[in-house]
Amino acid sequence: MLAITMFLLTIGVFLLMTRLYARLYHPLFVPVLTSTVVISSVLILFQIPYETYMTGGGWIDSMLGPAVVALAYPIFRQKDVIKAHMVPILLGVLAGLCTALLTGVWFAKLFGIDRTVSLTMVPKSLTTPVAIPVSDQIGGIPSMTIVFTMIAGFTGIVLGPLLLRLIKVDQPLGRGMAFGSASHALGTSKAFEYGEESASMSSVAMSLSAVFGSVIGPLFVWLFHI
């Protein structure tokens, strides 16, 4: 009974927030962010532990795997565009990945954050299921990495559109590369608002970052003696 309530709560809040977003269309009101805030507040208010919430929330969570698999469909539909732009795609993803791996650690050092927490930050741009094992492998704290990947995702969703306008990244390829490289699947869900081409580019960037990142991430830590 509680599980069904949690399940319906999640879907109900999401549908409501989607309607709100359609009306306001402000980046701060993107449904995944507002729904998270509303549901978290409800759980804290009624003192429902996360584990209890997941008895029903877990049903929705279990759709995430097949949803990521489904991203192969827009990528497939755009495969000619991808083939034609292989070089800019690969260079964009590598530039993004190196920036993500290095700047987090550099900024952390600048502010005197301790080593373990800095290491925890390294995989934040990768999709959560990749970020967790990478964090573990390099000596970070995996559960904390989840929070960092979430912040990276929400930053891209909320501030990304403004940033891309400022730096004049206005083509579907550049946009998709930016969202997918920095904000993984959360960014990809935002990229769908720009159309299928941006979304598929974002999916490509996310997938390539995941594959490269799981290799390059640990290598970086070893190379730079972070």
Binding site: G92, T99, F111, L163, L164, G174, S183
Partner: peptide, 28 residues
């Protein structure tokens, strides 16, 4: 502070990935 660091790094990542890919696309 940590959230700020992650956000800054994320914006730097978006800038790098977006600008590098768009630059090479236009160059071609």
């Amino acid at each position: 502070l940590l959230a700020g660091i992650v956000s800054l790094s994320t914006l730097a990542t978006m800038t790098a990935a977006g600008m590098v890919s768009q630059y090479f696309q236009n160059k071609r």
